[in-house]
Design a protein around this nucleic acid. Structure first.
Lengths: 339, 339
DNA sequence: ATCGGTCCGTAAAACGTTTTAGGTCGGGAT
DNA sequence: ATCCCGACCTAAAACGTTTTACGGACCGAT
């Protein structure tokens, strides 16, 4: 369909007020350069006509697009994409910026796509998520001097802005909670070694045990991929041991769901018989029976902070890396003997 | 931070090849207008320099932004936003378009924000979701002649493009499945009257009963808001009846989760004792114990079709409304006595 | 009276493309 | 020889803004 609806341009406002195009622009962007009466006339006419500067036309001379890029991850990133994106978008909107959503082109790597977006001059900066140790996107962005803020740390953590959850504090809190309710034999189902947040969560587990003066039994730490079946299997392995644990901590809700399923299969109840805790406080945690005790990441705060950092960088242009580690919160529910 | 990285413009390619700017543009956009040898030279140089036309600059003379708008809903829309957005973005990317994500400005209605986006000439068309009976956004878009495709029907269904799930067929399939496994006393937990998809799902329930020759007992249809507690309460009400149901159909997984929680509280087991089915096949359905029988909406297909319709409209410009009702699929799990 | 300075407004250039309207050249038909 | 046409290329205008540089008017000070 043809772009109809004859859009209102600055020229229409100029005609309506009898004042030049430049004066209209000045009246709207730099009010101090224009006589109060003229400004009033212009603003009134612009309002009446419903004039809004064309995005693309504005971007050209400004050298800014008023757009933030976000690459939507290929594999589902978890359940908070929803919340995260909403928060990011809302905050961006407060600063009059929009979000450009893109995804890796077919047959291209994600980094290639980032490069494309940069070359096209499509955005002023990026929000990253799902960072890895040596994240290639970070290399590219640093190299091209593109402002960005990452959700998650990387190996280059000190040279760029990031916001992350203190996962270590999270699992540690879970362990402390279990110790407080009388558990001594506490197991952990973790991911395979090598991911930043995974290793961090393991560290918190160990730390929590140490703080409670409990010796860490290596047999009680098993690794599993992040899916239901793997969680089930890992739990089964733990429960078959000579001295099975009385509590199972996991690094992700799905693993916890797997553990609960395995308990059910054996006629045991999560909570009364074996305590289980998850991580992320994703919807399944809340809706499962029994409801899952889980470590909640403050996604809203994270999204808000990320945009705040990015906008600051864009406006002030100082390029100084800013970082923030936010505290997660343990939400106690039935699966660990809570209410 | 200043936009550094001295971007490559068409002028650079022009200089590198010794050919005019217009020829470069033609070589890249309308190859037939340029001699083969020249074209080769231009393409080679463009490749070598990594030239990509600037988005904003291109939008101006083209009168197209190569962008599709999507307003991220305020309340969480469900769990498929993730999947849906990914699909939409990927398909858009196939057609060389990006997604502009926005959200209602503070203190403005969603419609106001749509109007803003249109006035700014920020997008070529929209993808809508979460439509209501008399959706104001639809009115606005039709009025401004903006191409768009809705996920979900509206009262103006015949005048615009939409893609929707046949919810009626979904609940009907759930009822049929329950009848097949021997149930006769089947209840429904539905939403309050008035939503398109909710009423549709109720209709499917009634239809299913009729088809099986079962008389519909009004006492077995209760209404509840879409949250866990409400589902719990509704189930409790049903189970307290003189003739409690042997199976409970729900119009959403969260209501089903509530029902299961209530069953558990009473020492009953979902599946063996009372069958329960959900709708949406959201993550909680899969991860709950027992795993939930649910009606799965083919989100990938929906997202793909929506973009397909929109791109077609944009390219062909015929503006003819296209519609598609896709069939959902019943996924049988333990909560209804499945494997 | 002339000068200098402010205030207010405007014309014009610039941003990086695409597209329109020619322009030049060579060759085939007359 | 002239004319016409097609093939190839280019200059220039256009898209809708912002911004720079300048000009006129007015005013107070010399």
């Amino acid at each position: 369909m043809l772009a109809v609806s004859s859009r209102i341009t600055i020229r229409d406002v100029s005609r309506a007020t009898g004042v030049s195009v430049s004066t209209v622009s000045n009246a709207l962007n730099a009010p101090e350069r224009v006589a109060p009466e003229t400004r009033r006339k212009v603003v009134e006419a612009a309002d009446r006509l419903g004039y809004r500067p064309n995005r693309a036309a504005r971007a050209l001379p400004k050298g800014r697009t008023f757009t933030i890029g976000y690459c939507i991850p290929a594999g589902r990133d978890g359940f908070f994409l929803d919340t995260f994106l909403h928060q990011v978008t809302e905050r961006a909107s407060d600063a009059d910026m929009d979000i450009l959503l893109f995804t890796a082109h077919r047959g291209q790597t994600e980094v290639d796509t980032f490069r494309e977006i940069i070359r096209r001059g499509a955005v002023d900066g990026f929000v990253l998520s799902g960072t890895t140790h040596d994240d290639q996107r970070v290399d590219l962005l640093l190299e091209s001097r593109m402002p960005f803020v990452a959700f998650g740390r990387t190996d280059l953590g000190s040279t760029h802005s990031w916001v992350d959850v203190d996962g270590r504090a999270g699992t540690r809190a879970a362990v402390e909670h279990l110790v407080d309710t009388g558990h001594r034999r506490i197991a952990l189902i973790a991911w395979p070694e090598g991911s930043i947040s995974g290793d961090d969560r393991v560290a918190g587990f160990v730390e929590g045990l140490e703080a409670a003066g409990i010796e860490h039994d290596p047999a009680l730490l098993v690794r599993a991929e992040n899916d239901l079946a793997a969680g089930r299997e890992a739990a089964s392995h733990l429960l078959d041991a000579d001295l099975p644990p009385s509590a199972i901590v996991t690094v992700q809700d799905i693993l916890a769901a797997g553990a609960i399923a395995e308990l059910n299969r054996r006629g045991l109840r999560a909570g009364p018989d074996v305590a289980v805790t998850g991580f992320d406080d994703s919807p399944p945690a809340l809706y499962s029976t029994p409801a899952l005790t889980s470590v909640r990441q403050p996604i809203e705060e994270i999204g808000r902070t990320i945009v705040e950092f990015l906008i600051h960088d864009l406006e002030e242009g100082d390029g100084i890396p800013r970082t923030r580690l936010v505290d997660p919160e343990l939400v106690v529910r039935e699966s660990s003997g809570g209410p």
